[in-house]
Design a protein around this nucleic acid. Structure first.
Lengths: 142, 142
DNA sequence: GTGAATGCAAAACCTTTGCAACTGG
DNA sequence: CCAGTTGCAAAGGTTTTGCATTCAC
């Protein structure tokens, strides 16, 4: 399911350097946490996951690192409901499905023609850098 | 631009009664504020707008009223960025365009065929009650 | 060495809650 | 009358900020 040409930690150092930012272990551990378990965790959840590996890290630093990753376009910040922001290391164009029963969020691939059709609703003059699509409903109970 | 068959305060009393809720002046004034100026205000902005008319109203009551209106399906609560929730009295199927420069949000009509095409990305078993679509970018500078 | 990044604590921000007083049906 | 609603103040959860310390380059 991964796209190994774009989604691995090796890119982090490069992206940071290219942006004139420093390549800190905190940034790496936070990024790896997002790559490892792609369940759209909150900052606090990321904090909980990286602490075993790096007990000295602070929650404020996790927030800082996440913001840096978003700035570097390695991570998407998602806000589809009131509450803490969630973070997503999937860079492929995709929609989110939010299960209202369980609170879980799944990625749904978006074929290029669908994206194009959606963009076609933009009136002339409007230019969109990104489109966010979120379904709210119920996912199959296995 | 209004849909007068669905979007006016007269419906409020009916909806509230139908749901076994009370028809209070606070609820009416909050709902009218959303119908009057459809710029997707925050709860606090609604508070500022209704206060001249009803100085005794409290912010907590504005929050309560907004939640009630959302429950009654007269208002949509929108969360497309970190920060306070915004409220929208447009009940027609529509997408949001968020201007990253000005922070303004515009409604964009969604033709039925686009909605259908978007829903077609749902895998079997997934049932979506709602879909939210938000563009982030730049709107024309008049 | 030096500016950027971290860690900590406190502050800020948005929203919810508890509860007494009020009110719409 | 009386359960639902309001208003107020205090608490709660999330994120940001200030600042001294540390670290990557």
């Amino acid at each position: 399911m991964r796209n190994d040409t774009t989604d691995h930690p090796a890119n982090l150092a490069e992206r940071l350097t290219r942006s004139g930012l420093r390549n800190t272990p905190q940034r790496e551990v936070v990024y790896r946490a997002l790559l490892d378990k792609r369940d759209h965790p909150t900052a606090d959840e990321v904090y909980g996951r990286v602490r075993p590996e790096m007990p000295s890290i602070s929650l404020a630093t996790v927030y800082n690192c996440l913001e840096t990753l978003v700035q570097c376009d390695l991570v998407r910040q998602v806000n589809f409901e009131r509450g803490p922001s969630r973070y997503c290391a999937n860079l492929q164009p995709h929609a989110h499905f939010h299960d209202e029963k369980t609170g879980a969020t799944y990625d749904l691939d978006l074929p290029p023609d669908v994206i194009e059709r959606i963009r076609s609703v933009l009136p002339p003059g409007y230019s969109a850098k990104t489109v966010e699509i979120t379904f709210h409903g119920q996912s199959p109970t296995p």
